[in-house]
Amino acid sequence: MPRFTVPLGIFLLLVVLLGVGLTLNPRLVPSPLVDKPLPAFELPTVLDPEQRLSHDELRGRVSLLNVWATWCVPCREEHPVLVGIARRGEAIIYGLNYKDDREEAVNWLETLGDPYVKSGFDPTGRAGIDLGVYGVPETFIIDANGTIVYKHIGPFDDKIWRETLLPLVKKAQENSS
């Protein structure tokens, strides 16, 4: 049998390595912004161009910053989850409307519900670039000091909210109180 041990060993090693590789998601790139302060931005809001949303407003309490767009299909799927969170008062949610049309964004909030305290309007996507956004939706958890605690890439559902994000929000709230 020693004749087959080496090829068999190499084969098994490959199986294990490829198996691990299959379970990883290459789209989840670790963000260098985690544990860093929220990048500076100042944007008009979606509903009122006279009003502004800046990074400073997200200081002082734990909040979510959800990057969304009306052209983003998974955002539509995620939206009821956000509405639920806001209705139950589990977290304060700010929005960043990314590369979108204002009229359509307003229409979206009016028909599907508005879970956001405010949504910044970023039609050029420049604020999005500073936040390292590359796939909407993305959701940041920001602690009371304005530091990014966690970044969730892609849509999340009730299960991910309860099991992953909500505990992180609660932990951040405990740390800051």
Binding site: V29, P30, S31, P32, I129, D130, L131, G132
Partner: peptide, 8 residues
């Protein structure tokens, strides 16, 4: 670029 998107 690295500051925003990481070394990836």
């Amino acid at each position: 670029m690295v500051a925003r998107y990481g070394e990836f």
